[in-house]
Design a protein around this nucleic acid. Sequence first.
DNA 1: CGAAGATACGGAGGCACCCTCCGTTTAACA
DNA 2: TGTTAAACGGAGGGTGCCTCCGTATCTTCG
Lengths: 212, 212
Amino acid sequence: MDDHTDQSRKPRADAVRNRERVLEAAKLVFNAGGSEASLEAVAKRAGVGIGTLYRHFPTREDLFEAVYRREVEQLSELAEQLKNAKDPVDALRRWLRSGVEFVATKKGMVAALALAVQSGSELQTFSFERLTKAIGSLLDRAAAAGAMRADISPEDLLRAFFGMCYMHDQPGWQSSVLRMLDVFVDGLRVQPAGKIKTRAASSAKPAAKRKR
Amino acid sequence: MDDHTDQSRKPRADAVRNRERVLEAAKLVFNAGGSEASLEAVAKRAGVGIGTLYRHFPTREDLFEAVYRREVEQLSELAEQLKNAKDPVDALRRWLRSGVEFVATKKGMVAALALAVQSGSELQTFSFERLTKAIGSLLDRAAAAGAMRADISPEDLLRAFFGMCYMHDQPGWQSSVLRMLDVFVDGLRVQPAGKIKTRAASSAKPAAKRKR
DNA sequence: CGAAGATACGGAGGCACCCTCCGTTTAACA
DNA sequence: TGTTAAACGGAGGGTGCCTCCGTATCTTCG
């Protein structure tokens, strides 16, 4: 019961050092494209035993999270800044493009985030929540300005985005994704059902409930 | 040198039977959602040795291809029919929705096709080519009618589509994907750069070269 | 400083899967 | 029915995942 969250002791030096080493090795290995690289390879590269790796990061996802936390935060902050842009739709577009940029550099990021999305349910997944919030604020602003349909949830958009990026490591993926994102954003400017003569209602379900 | 492609012999009965058994088992296992199921599980379910499975289908991809060939052909034919629809954009939309329908039923199909897309390069991948052709004809028709931008390749679209579907097995994935596809198709109706005031050119690269 | 105790280390080991190889079986043909 | 090519099937070698626990090392306190 005694909630001595603070230092009942100093954390062991070797533990701190090893954690850092693993993180460093993982970053190298994952960014090199091999987001599916074996954790044992990471451990070896870090010069620690596999047991140590698992103690620090019980789950592959945990490791991903730690490795890409900084990047996620950067993307998050970018969204914050873009809230001040004049054109809210353009802001969204720019944010998505930056996302592509990140993915291009950190190859492992897609897999990491996709995993975070999939692992789904109500797991913590800091990254997913953070990005959802970021994208949500951009969406809301654009929708509030009437510049964009309002029935698309941040989760929808994130999933679509990751999905598109999932095909990275293809020859021309990057320009392809950029093009697709443009199409997508253009589509968001169109108000949903009715006005387009696509027979009846354009969607079976009324709309997803927005979370935030 | 002697090119006796025809029956120098009748194919062995057990070989034919086993091939069929494996196919059947694989269909069951993959459709049950586990597109990543172990091939050994498939073999066991089929009542054959693992060696037999590998002889008939040297690659996981080969097996996928065989299992989903029929479905791919159905989708392909649907595209053929839709070419006669009045509104070419609507035709595309409908085709994509049917794709979602397929994915919903045959869970393994996404993984199979995604793998086909990824394995990429110039591997044969019958399915990928077939679908590319199908979607290409729909795109071309819509573009020719001036109802849609013309710089999107079938490959682009396929990748985006699979990407979105990759998140199946999520709670609300199906309606989410349908919504996203609507957005997407709406976006395709907008002509590309220039007219929209999104600063400068809307895409870094000029456009992908269309294959067909 | 030197013990005591807490904490972390690391890799062996059990499990699952991948894929290959080859001795044995079986079907087709004469 | 015998010959022979084709197919069978599973043992085995490799890799990766993850757990468990005996051992090593660090911190603290006397």
